[in-house]
Design a protein around this nucleic acid. Structure first.
Length: 593
DNA sequence: CGTCTTTGACCCGCGC
DNA sequence: GCGCGGGTCAAAGACG
């Protein structure tokens, strides 16, 4: 974490500031804070106890400071879950009462006659239960951490081996490259989910958290310095270096001359200050165009041809694939009154055009969090409904991101993962499909029908394949819920602590950004976000999102940004789960093989 | 004074 | 070859 980030003050950096606070939230150790736990129980069972009011007030303050749902959320069970960081208990009163009744054989009359001892007994039993749950989860977390480390080492080894093979045999098998790419995407998703759930749960020692965080940030930063450690996570982003020694399509690595420590410091300084340093300007895209494949369509095409022409060792199919990755776009539709959604990154407007067929101008922004970052985004209001804001992201960041921005940035990788599933590059270029603007999936898309038809669409229209996430639509159908609740493929067995569900995402972001989400979170949970699972193993499949909830979500642009990223990741994982099928999904949800 | 936004000009690819 | 549309550049003005 960048301590100087607290200096962020410009409007453009507030998103990053929010994201930074989310990490701070993630460092809270709810499990270690037994007084906190006790206090929560006091809130749960002693609403009328004046002695606890002070503590409740403290909890309220704490909750506001850290973005925790407030006790005045009428759902006390939910509050308890969030403060333990897990959806361990039911939030329905009936289920809660049944839980409490489990430990007592007495009847209601007995409770009336002996209210205090019974309540104490209940508290004690509840405390014991939570402690045991606590202990179990610690064990699970430890196991997950260990598994992750092992997996990461394994992938690193494989990646390194593959890297060496690629260098030895330039015309390596395309599928192998694809495996590397997809592997990196999956690994990235997994990393995010692990970290995200860890952050959400707020469990684990702070030291562990710091180690993990620094490790992750280190990997990200090391990518710029070419450390072999990064080749898993960054294999896709750094691939261009391997493919093209000329650097013509070097999308994410600055030229060696730029990768100095001074530049790193400058980048960080820029991020801390929330503005471009004096004397620093955006690298002209005449450089950028040849340095990345994410500029204008012409630049992309020019870039591709340059790349292919200048690297005789390049596998044309792999080159095309990489081009597709770089050109893949993620479009987000969300209702917002703001001029653009806040996604944690720092943007600079560089152009505005009137697009044909839309009276609303289209604004062009580029990321200014680091010199030469190739990421751009377009923001335009929908012609039909001007309350809908369409934001299209393109490219990959070449710098470490604040958590909030990291979530959104991941959409590109997820999009690439989706777009690259199957055999897209095998001569069946998406340009040939030309189903412009429809919810038509090319045959390489494996999203479940309901998902593609409602929440996310893949457009293979030229010149860029685009994933569109429509948050203006409410996921109310059971199939939608199934999609949103689908367990990520890396969630193993009965352990769901590293799986991420929509409500977890919601709660996570509620907790992450108190200034923005603190009050709204109450509305979210009161307006139909149902967390009605008492069994953690069934948690993911049992959640629904109401129309009111979706409305509340989409009304908040910041919230939308994080949500979109999370949904995209889930969709990407759903895709991975369905990777053995090949289907075409039409707008009405029917599926053809 | 430095940074950001605005906006007209320019470049490029594509379709006819 | 020409026109159109999308995307970018860069000078000038606005802003703090």
């Amino acid at each position: 974490m960048d301590p100087a980030g607290e200096e962020l003050g410009s409007p453009a950096m507030r998103g990053g500031d929010i994201g930074r606070k989310s990490w701070m939230v993630g460092e809270l150790d709810f499990f270690a804070d037994k007084t906190n736990l006790k206090a929560k129980q006091g809130v749960d069972h002693h609403h009328d106890d004046d002695d606890d009011h002070d503590q409740v007030d403290k909890d309220q303050e704490t909750g506001r400071d850290h973005g925790i749902l407030q006790p005045d959320d009428h759902d006390q069970g939910l509050k308890l879950e969030l403060n333990t960081g897990l959806f361990l208990t039911t939030n329905t009163s009936s289920e809660k009462s049944s839980t409490l009744d489990d430990g007592s054989s007495g009847n209601v009359e007995d409770n009336k006659n002996k209210p205090i001892p019974n309540e104490l007994a209940h508290m004690q039993s509840e405390l014991d239960r939570l402690n045991s749950e606590n202990h179990r989860l610690r064990g699970l977390l430890s196991q997950i951490g260990t598994d992750y480390q092992i997996l990461h080492m394994h992938l690193s080894t494989l990646s390194q081996r593959q890297h060496n093979q690629n260098l030895e045999t330039p015309e390596s098998d395309h599928s192998t490259k694809m495996n590397m790419i997809n592997g990196s995407i999956l690994e990235e998703n997994q990393r995010r989910f692990v970290v995200g759930s860890r952050q959400f749960m707020g469990i684990g020692r702070e030291k562990d958290h710091e180690v993990l965080h620094s490790s992750l940030e280190g990997r990200s930063q090391n990518c710029a310095s070419g450390s072999p450690q990064n080749e898993i996570v960054e294999s896709m982003e750094c691939k261009s270096t391997i493919i093209s020694p000329t650097g013509l399509i070097n999308n994410n690595k600055r030229p060696p001359s730029d990768s100095t420590d001074d530049d790193h410091h400058q980048d960080h300084d820029q991020g801390r200050r929330g503005q471009v340093l004096p004397g620093r300007k955006w690298v002209p895209n005449k450089v950028g165009r040849f340095n990345n494949g994410t500029a204008s369509p012409g630049a992309c095409r020019e870039n591709n041809s340059n790349n292919i022409n200048n690297d005789q060792h390049e596998d044309p199919q792999a080159s095309e694939t990489m081009s597709m990755i770089r050109k893949a776009r993620v479009s987000v539709r969300a209702r917002s009154d703001a001029s653009m959604i806040s996604d944690g990154c720092q943007w600079r407007k560089y152009g505005q055009k009137m697009a044909k067929g839309n009276p609303c101008p289209r604004a062009y922004y580029r990321c200014t969090m680091a010199t030469g970052c190739p990421v751009r985004k377009q923001v335009q209001r929908c012609a039909d409904d001007r309350s809908i804001l369409t934001t299209t992201y393109e490219g990959h960041h070449n710098h470490p991101l604040p958590p909030a921005a990291m979530a959104m940035a991941s959409t590109t990788s997820a999009a690439a993962s989706m777009l690259l599933s199957g055999s897209m590059p095998s001569g069946d270029h998406p340009h040939h499909h030309h189903h412009q603007g429809l919810n038509f999936l090319p045959r390489t898309a494996h999203l479940p029908a309901a998902c593609s038809a409602s929440l996310a669409t893949l457009s293979a229209s030229a010149p860029f394949p685009t994933v569109t996430l429509d948050l203006t639509r409410t996921p109310t159908s059971s199939s939608d819920q199934a999609i949103l609740g689908q367990r990520p493929p890396f969630s193993q067995g009965g352990d769901n602590v590293n799986s991420v569900s929509l409500p977890q995402i919601l709660s996570q972001n509620v907790m992450s950004s108190p200034q923005v989400f603190g009050s709204k979170s109450l509305g979210l949970h009161n307006q139909g976000l149902l967390l009605n699972s008492s069994n953690p193993h069934d948690l993911v499949a049992s959640e629904t999102v109401s129309a009111a909830t979706a409305a509340a979500i989409t009304a908040d642009p910041n919230f939308t940004a994080a949500l979109v990223a999370a949904i995209t990741s889930i969709i990407g994982n759903v895709k991975s789960n369905n990777n053995n099928t090949s289907s075409v999904t039409t707008r009405n949800g029917s599926e053809k093989n």
